[in-house]
Computed example of a mutant assay.
Amino acid sequence: MTTNIRILISRDHHFFPILESSGRADVTILSRGADIEKLELKEDLILDLTAWGREKKSDLLERLCESTTKPVISDLSLVWGEAFLKRYSFIAGAVATVFHSPTATYESFVRPEHKPLLDKAFESLGISLHPVEEVGIGFTFPRISAMVINEAYFALEEGLASSEDIDTAMKFGVNYPLGPIDWSLRTNPKHIVTLLDELQSVTGDQRYRASMRLRLESPLS
C-alpha cells in the first residue's frame, strides 16, 4: 500500500537543499506556522521537519492540531520534547534531525502503531532511524553535540587554538568524524544556540550557557 506523506520543512534545516533539489511534490516550505492554513493536509502522515525553537514550534503544533486528524511526527530537536509530547498529545512521535549526522542516522521516538508509517517516510529520504525510549530536552545526540560544540567556541573565545586546530585535534585525537567547528557550520550555529538556551531555561544550569563567540556566528533571524 502506498503511503502518502506531507513533509513540512524550514529553509534553515540542513535537509532543505537536498529536498529542494529533489523536486519532490510532497515537500512544503514553511517560514511560520500560519503557512499551513493554505494546505489541505490529507496525506497519511504529516512529517514536521521545521528547525524551530519553543515559540514557533508551539504555534505550528497548535495550528496542526486544528488543521488535521492525520498522524503528525514532529522534529523536537530544539525543545523540551518530553513536555511537548505531553502538551500536544495528538503527536504520534518525534524525531531529532536538525543536527547534522555524519552517518545519516537520527533518533526517533514514536508510538508503536505509527512506526511503519515513520519508517516508510524516512526510507524515502534515505535516512536511518535509531529508536530511543525517551526524548528529554533535545534528545541525546543534539544535546551532547551542542555541549561539545559550545566548549570549542569557548576555546576560540579564550584564544586557546584556531578553528582549524580545534577541528584537527578532535578528529585525530578523539576520533570524531567531524571537528566541532565544522559540525556547527553543517548544522547551523543558530540551532545550537537555540538548544543551549532551551536547556539552560528548563534546567537553570549554567553549564548550558552559550558561548558569545557561538552567538556571534548565529544569524539573528
Rank of each mutant, 00 (worst) to 15 (best):
E43C: 01
T50G: 06
S22W: 05
E20P: 03
H13S: 07
L19V: 03
G53K: 03
K38R: 13
G23T: 08
D35S: 10
L30D: 04
L41M: 08
L45F: 05
L60F: 08
T50F: 02
A34I: 14
K57C: 05
D48P: 02
E20F: 09
K57V: 10
I29Y: 10
H13K: 08
E43M: 04
L49M: 10
L61A: 04
S21D: 12
A51N: 07
A51T: 09
D12W: 06
A34G: 12
D48A: 05
L49V: 05
V27T: 00
L47K: 00
E55D: 14
L49R: 02
L61V: 11
I36Y: 00
V27D: 00
R11E: 13
E37F: 10
D44P: 01
K42R: 15
L30W: 05
I46K: 00
E20D: 12
S31G: 11
E43A: 10
T50C: 15
E55S: 13
R24V: 01
G53Y: 06
I36D: 00
A51F: 02
R24P: 03
G23E: 11
I29R: 13
L60C: 08
G23L: 09
D35W: 10
E55K: 15
G53V: 07
L41Q: 02
G23V: 08
T50Y: 06
S21E: 13
D26Y: 02
A34D: 15
E40D: 13
A34C: 11
L19A: 03
R32T: 11
D44G: 01
R54D: 13
L41G: 02
L47W: 03
G23S: 10
D59G: 10
F15K: 03
E20A: 13
L19C: 04
F15C: 04
R63E: 12
L30G: 05
K57H: 08
I18Y: 13
E40H: 12
D44T: 01
S22R: 11
E37D: 13
T50Q: 04
L30Q: 01
H13Q: 06
R32F: 03
P17A: 05
H13W: 07
E62D: 13
L41T: 02
I36A: 00
K38A: 14
S22D: 11
D12R: 11
A25S: 14
I36H: 01
P17W: 07
E20Y: 08
D12F: 07
L45W: 00
D48N: 14
E40C: 05
K56Y: 09
E55P: 04
S31F: 05
R32D: 11
S58N: 12
S58H: 14
K42D: 12
V27N: 00
K38P: 00
E43Y: 01
G53P: 06
S31Q: 12
W52V: 06
A51P: 06
F16N: 03
T50L: 06
K57S: 10
F16V: 01
L45R: 00
L19K: 01
E43H: 02
W52P: 01
I46S: 01
P17G: 10
R32E: 15
G33A: 09
R24D: 08
